[in-house]
Amino acid sequence: MTPTPMIELSHVSRLFDNAVAVDDISLQINSGELCVIVGTSGCGKSTTLRLLNKLISCSSGNIRIDGEDIAGLDAKLLRRRMGYAIQNTGLFPHWSVERNIGVVPTLLGWSPEKIKARVHELLELLSLPYAEFAHKFPSQLSGGQAQRVGVARALAGDPDILLMDEPFGALDPITRDSLQNELLRIQSQINKTIVFVTHDIDEALKLATRIVVMDKGRIVQHDTPANLLDRPVNEFVQSLLGQNERGLKRASLEPVKTHMQALSGDLPEHSVNVDDTLRQAMSLMYWHRTDILCVRDADNHAVGLLPMRALLDSPTA
């Protein structure tokens, strides 16, 4: 059985003063997917995202959300069903964190008690204690905190779909990394359909279930991160992935789990976590000048061995 697509674009184009921003793209995004649209600036990725919530209208083609053609839907009502988070947060500077997060629930006409409970829940979900943050104003937050509030606000109306336009683009690498992990953790809990736009291929490889590579308004390739690395369709995708780094990027998509061998003989001196990636295992081998690691689980029990040769085997299920 094929899952019904949550978002479906067929032959969508968008012109700006006769310049083509989005050129005849067709795309299906399934429910529960985290689809990352990646490309260089000006490739039409942000325009594509804005077509989805009608901030921009299609010049031709049509878009279906959950089976409904959005051309016939009221833009305001459509947007309230979709979370929207953008790069510079767009938080309302004159409202407290609590009121910012409560925007969509208020527009949806929820009761004040329900809104307050929802704000509470979301702040805890994003590791911002309610008592400390609810009454702060955006100017009193750090960049990372403001972006978390931006994500909380996007989730507030409990939408099926979350649209994110380079939400972590303006953050320092450490904060960006922790927010990416946070997003993956949240997604494993709430399982929304997320469309995420970025120019950072590493961010795309880390987050995506499937990646859409765009160039000059067209979709160049639409595939899983592993397939994208294994079989890039053309030189543009290859260069986007980085020629020499491809091996390491591919290794960071493979968990140690699928390459480890059964325990036998003495335990090696150095260990790797069973949930770590092959890339981290390779780094440890290089660092400790060893060709074999002991694989341990979360409780620190030895569960297998990882010799260097095993890295070259094809993964076991």
């Binding site: 305001k76 947007r79 510079n88 947060t89 767009g90 527009l107």
Partner: peptide, 26 residues
């Protein structure tokens, strides 16, 4: 700030709500 206006529209505010709740107070 354009980002503030864009996110106000993106949240599903009507033009009138954007004017009254966001533009004018700021």
């Amino acid at each position: 700030a354009p980002a503030v206006i864009e996110s106000a529209h993106g949240m599903g505010m009507s033009s009138w709500q954007v004017l009254r709740q966001v533009r004018v107070p700021l």
